[in-house]
Design a protein around this nucleic acid. Sequence first.
DNA 1: ATGCCTGTCTGGGACAGA
Length: 258
Amino acid sequence: MKIATFNVNGITSRLQRLLEWLDESQPDIACLQELKTSDATFPLQAIEAAGYGAVWHGQKGFNGVAVLARGAQPVEIRRGLPGDPDDTHSRYLEAQVHGLTVASIYLPNGNPQPGPKFDYKLAWFERLIQHAAALCEAREPVVLVGDYNVVPSNEVGDIYSPKSWLDDALLQPESRDAWRRLLAQGWTDAIATLHPGVPMYTFWDYFRNRWSRNAGLRIDHLLLNAAAAKQLASAGIDREVRGRDKPSDHAPAWVVLK
DNA sequence: ATGCCTGTCTGGGACAGA
């Protein structure tokens, strides 16, 4: 069972990159973020033609998350996190498919900080922590994947160099503290567990030659509860996707469960 | 040192992203 996460940065302009990656990587489940399109304009036909069923939560111009499943129709469990009825952002979609529960997460970026966007990020994180507690305790496998917009540490496995990012919302102690408290519920960070100490970046800014210099950040994560972690076989990053024509600024990350 | 690129909505320039 291969589960992947991919921030596509606009599914409309990224559709060919997405389809070729699905064909190559053959994930059983693919969670997408930053669709940047409305529910009505989600390219369902092309995704079904590629052999995938889908549920999605779109938003015109911004945000947007989806869960794709190869040869299956995901069953939607929840769209949006509980705890704030005024939150209009499409950032959380939870579904059951292929015998497990999976969530596609697009955690707020939070820049600039300090400020209201950073406050929103931290508040959203607290709502995720609240909601994730019961999922972590589930006896069935649960996988929370997506763009968490947190660089977990300043180590080279997580960032090429923290120097120019020290004031960024992705590295702030508050962001990292929330990340640590989420993991402390009992989640396994699949990439960090299987590839400690080596660069496992998932994002490279479009400018400043960040891709050609491999000046990347590890911000897309795959978290497994105990039942899922028992099945953990391998994990990786499809880096080559970032080097193609008209790429997303993120590369897909994936985990295989036995 | 700096959104320096890129996508979206829109129809040129603003906003958002990380």
